[in-house]
């Protein structure tokens, strides 16, 4: 067990190193990425450029620059942006993270509850029009580009029908911190939550239904039926519990991806200053320190989630445990 954990840790460090080195190299290979002129300001004299180059260490060999950047990012945590001079990137991420976490947690709650309900109902009523209708709804959810859905939601709630009783409560775009105003936080996030959740409701309810349907053919389900348990009880106590293994592992990965910045389209459309939008801004500005920090942040989440899911599997599913 200990060995497995250590190996996992080694792999994680390797992956993080790989990503950071890759980001670093790609950045310096990109033409136009030299940040000196941007830091020095427009029309700065060559001497000022030289001063900036020395101050930021751009004249040093790449491995040294890489090491310095990693030190500033992880140890001293005083890495500053190349674009907004003087802006430290670590606190910037610390401020963006709660926004993304708020967005993703709310959406996750919605999609877990709704997809379990939809998946179970569909499986229970397999082959009926309810089943087909629910699954078609799910499919439509999967098929909508999230940024477009967000735009349409904005159009309806912010503009077209904002003056009607139905949507007059919707606040302007943007984020309200939970600590400042919980009710405002809720109102600002409700629509983004729903928009982000739609696709996942589709995926998860379909996966769950497929699993439940497949399980109904398994021996232990037949045994349960033979014991005379009620169909609802079988479905909920036996079927659903078993299906949760897949469900939870899928959820862990998606959740980590979203918290790590995968929700950027939703954040962009709803003007939420989260990690995804920060990453996107950093990328478009070729702001290496911020790119490095955000990519590391998201990689840590995803890699950790992968590890956690694998370990959970080890505990939850005897088949996997024995196979190792």
């Amino acid at each position: 067990m200990m060995m497995a954990l250590l190996r996992r840790l080694g792999q994680t460090v390797f992956v993080l190193f790989g990503i950071s080195a890759l980001v670093f190299l790609v950045f310096f290979a990109t033409p136009g990425a030299d940040p000196t002129a941007r830091i020095a300001g427009r029309n700065a004299s060559p001497q000022t450029m030289e001063k900036v180059r020395q101050e930021y260490g751009f004249d040093r060999p790449l491995p040294v620059q890489y090491a310095t950047m990693m030190k500033k990012l992880f140890i001293t945590q005083d890495l500053a942006s190349y674009v907004d001079r003087g802006e430290l990137v670590v606190p910037e991420i610390a401020r963006a993270a709660p926004v993304t976490v708020s967005l993703v947690c709310g959406a996750a709650l919605i999609w877990v509850v709704l997809s379990i309900a939809m998946g179970t109902i569909a499986a229970a009523m397999k082959g009926t029009w309810v089943d087909r209708g629910l699954m078609m709804l799910g499919l439509i959810g999967i098929s909508m580009p999230v940024f477009w859905l967000g735009q349409v939601a904005n159009l309806i709630t912010q503009s077209r029908y904002h003056d009607t009783w139905l949507f007059s409560w919707v606040p302007g775009l943007g984020y309200v911190p939970l600590t400042e105003n919980p009710w405002g936080w809720f109102k600002a996030l409700v629509i983004p939550w729903i928009v982000l959740a739609v696709m996942f409701i589709g995926i998860y309810s379909r996966v769950l239904r497929a699993d439940l349907v497949a399980l109904s053919g398994e021996d232990f389900m037949r045994t349960a039926r033979a014991k005379g348990l009620s169909p609802t009880r079988i479905l909920l106590r036996h079927g659903l519990r078993t299906s949760m293994v897949t469900f939870v592992s899928l959820f862990g990965l998606d959740f980590a991806q979203l918290v790590g910045g995968g929700a950027l389209l939703t954040e962009v459309v709803f003007g939420l200053p989260g990690v995804g939008r920060l990453t996107y801004q950093a990328l478009t500005n070729l702001d290496l320190p911020l790119i490095m920090a955000t990519v590391m942040y998201s990689a840590v989440f995803v890699v950790l989630a992968n590890a956690v899911v694998d370990i959970l599997y080890l505990f939850l599913d005897p088949r996997v445990r024995d196979a190792r």
Binding site: G18, I19, Q257, G262, T279, V295, V302, N306
Partner: peptide
Amino acid sequence: DIMWAVPVYLFAISLSIV
């Protein structure tokens, strides 16, 4: 694993911007 560790859209966006 390395590719997997970055959210898909972020990965695609980074490559595209470059």
